[in-house]
Structure formats: C-alpha cells, structure tokens
C-alpha cells in the first residue's frame, strides 16, 4: 500500500520521476504514453456505457438499471486511476532498466465486463420487468 502512495506522489511530480535512472529512448516513452491513452479510452468507454445503460434501457427495473450503470462507472473510475498508475510504474521501470511491471488488472477488468455481460443476458432472458 505504501508503494501505491509513493506512486500517487509521482503522478504529480515530474522532477521526482526524472531523478531516477537514465532517460529511455523517447520512442519507448511515446509507446508507453499511447498505452496509457488506450487504457484511458477504455475507461471513458466504460463511463459512456454507464450512461448508455441508464438512458437506453428505460423499461428495465430501476434497481437493475442503477446497479449495472454504477458497476460500469466504477469499473471506468478504477480503469482510469490504474491507467495513470501503470504508466508511472512503466516509465520508472524503463528509466531504471528494470522489467516492466506485471499486472493483474486486465484479468480483473475482463471478469467485471464478463459479469456485467452475463447480467445483461439474464435481464434480457428473464424479461425487462424482471
């Protein structure tokens, strides 16, 4: 957990990140930046999905609608925060010449999306009114 807090400090302080190791090939930094942006797009898509569930399924029972929307929005928030954290960790690993950090997050996100998808299928099969 303290590792995470230290990373949060790095989110805001470019000087501290630059203090560590050497500057990597800027093409690697740009690739890392694009990966970060791809995760951020995923987060924005999840947030958009949350809006969409709320608006385009008006016949759904309210509890289901709000629950699914909040699940997607929470996944979006987690995905966005994790995107910047992973970007900082990768950038630091490249500066230090270490291996890139491994991550369980893609598995976690896949499971959440799968659960939401199964919930949608159930809702459709059981009927809109539940």
């Amino acid at each position: 957990m303290s590792e995470f807090v230290r990373n949060i400090r790095l989110w805001f302080a470019p000087e501290r990140l630059r203090d560590e190791g050497g500057t990597p090939d800027y093409r690697f930094s740009l690739a890392n930046e694009r990966t970060f942006l791809a995760w951020l797009r995923t987060a924005l898509a999840l947030i958009g999905g949350g809006f969409a569930v709320d608006q385009f399924l008006p016949d759904l029972r309210r509890a289901w609608r709000v629950g699914l929307a909040l699940a997607l929005l929470a996944a979006g928030v987690l995905c966005a925060l994790r995107a910047v954290n992973h970007w900082v960790r990768c950038e630091r690993a490249m500066r230090r010449g270490e291996d890139l950090p491994a991550s369980r997050f893609p598995v976690l996100l896949s499971l959440v999306v799968a659960v939401v998808a199964v919930a949608m299928v159930l809702v459709v099969l059981v009927g809109w009114e539940g």
Partner: peptide, 14 residues
C-alpha cells in the same frame, strides 16, 4: 516526455 501532472489531469477529468 509526457508530464505526469498532465497525465493525472486527463485521468482526473475522466
């Protein structure tokens, strides 16, 4: 390189 502050700002918007 991308400044961490800028990356954080983009994430906080989301």
């Amino acid at each position: 390189a991308l400044a961490p502050r800028r990356a954080t700002a983009a994430v906080l918007c989301a």
